[in-house]
């Protein structure tokens, strides 16, 4: 039994590694391209470069804006994710537990939010009215408002899977609504929270459209815009563009790898039987 299992697992592992080439090859193309010279990088291929140009990364890093825009992206993406996750999980928790008619309607409104197309002009007018246009506060709240429907939806499905008996025992222990949620429920939603964190963080990090409209100062723009500017500056220099793309990719990869560990941590307890 054990040996058979091991065999199956090894076969599975090999198959999965072969399958992963579908993902790895395009990424490898990007990596190879980032260390080629200009002419070799004109058509992306899996050919090894004749010489390795790691100085491409130095060229990109020399730009003075990259640190500031990195900091902006980090600020906007992190705060947006935190605000979105806390508000959404609270709302989803109450809406699943207490299914009144009003709560159902509110949930449906959230769902509609998943599909409403953005109108920039009216959104801009509302931000003007609230005096938060062109501010970090404005853009962070706007991102949160945009991501809340999806995040609520994500939590809503999973809260239903948490047994209600837990609530009752917490009440017996003397917890109120806030204590119950933050001490008992929220920690249990860890897999979803981390998933939501990763998704919101990367959506925020990769977005370049909202800052164009709602932040009127390039000093507040994020890293992806800095990358965009390289496109014209290094026109047709695909090696430098690839290097810039990779630099932009690293932070979100870090967040994912960090977070991924926590998605998995929940399952190690009952791991493979020997």
């Amino acid at each position: 039994m054990t040996r058979k299992h091991t065999m199956i697992n090894v076969t599975k592992e090999i198959c999965m590694w072969i399958l992963s080439l579908i993902i790895l090859i395009p990424v490898a193309m990007l990596l190879l391209n980032s260390v080629k010279n200009v002419t070799e990088s004109a058509s992306m291929s899996l050919k090894l470069p004749t010489s390795f140009h790691f100085d491409n990364f130095v060229t990109v890093f020399k730009d003075g804006n990259i640190l500031r825009s990195f900091w902006n992206s980090l600020l906007i993406s992190s705060l947006t994710s935190v605000i979105t996750i806390i508000t959404s999980s609270m709302a989803a928790f109450v809406m699943t537990r207490n299914r009144t008619r009003l709560n159902r309607y509110i949930y449906i409104l959230f769902l509609i939010g998943l599909i409403v197309p953005m109108n920039y002009i009216t959104t801009m007018k509302v931000l003007q009215m609230l005096h938060i246009i062109n501010t970090f506060t404005g853009i962070i709240l706007l991102y949160s408002a945009t991501f809340i429907p999806f995040t609520v939806f994500l939590f809503y499905g999973f809260v239903s899977g948490i047994p209600k008996e837990l609530d009752e025992s917490a009440v017996i222990d003397g917890s109120g609504g806030g204590g119950l949620f933050f001490r008992i429920i929220f920690p249990l939603m860890k897999p979803v929270s981390v998933t939501a964190l990763i998704i919101n963080f990367l959506n925020c990090w990769n977005d370049f459209v909202l800052p164009l409209y709602f932040l009127n100062s390039s000093g507040k723009w994020g890293m992806i815009m800095t990358m965009y500017n390289y496109f014209s500056q290094y026109i047709s220099s695909w090696n430098l563009v690839s290097a810039a793309m990779l630099i932009n990719l690293v932070p979100i990869l870090v967040v994912y790898v960090l977070g991924q560990k926590y998605i998995i941590s929940g399952m190690t307890a009952g791991a493979v039987k020997g």
Binding site: I83, I86, T87, S88, M90, A91, F93, V94, M95, R97, N98, N103, I106, L109, F110, I112, G113, V116, P117, M118, N119, I121, T122, T123, K125, V126, L127, L130, L141, L142, S144, A145, T146, I148, P149, V152, D167, V171, G176, G177, L180, F181
Partner: peptide
């Protein structure tokens, strides 16, 4: 236990900054 106050922050944010302007559009 499941107070409506928990729904309020998410809803207000979403309603004022997303739903209203975009439906107005």
């Amino acid at each position: 236990l499941y107070s409506w106050k928990f729904v309020l922050p998410a809803f207000l944010l979403f309603f004022a900054l997303f739903l209203v302007p975009n439906l107005m559009g």
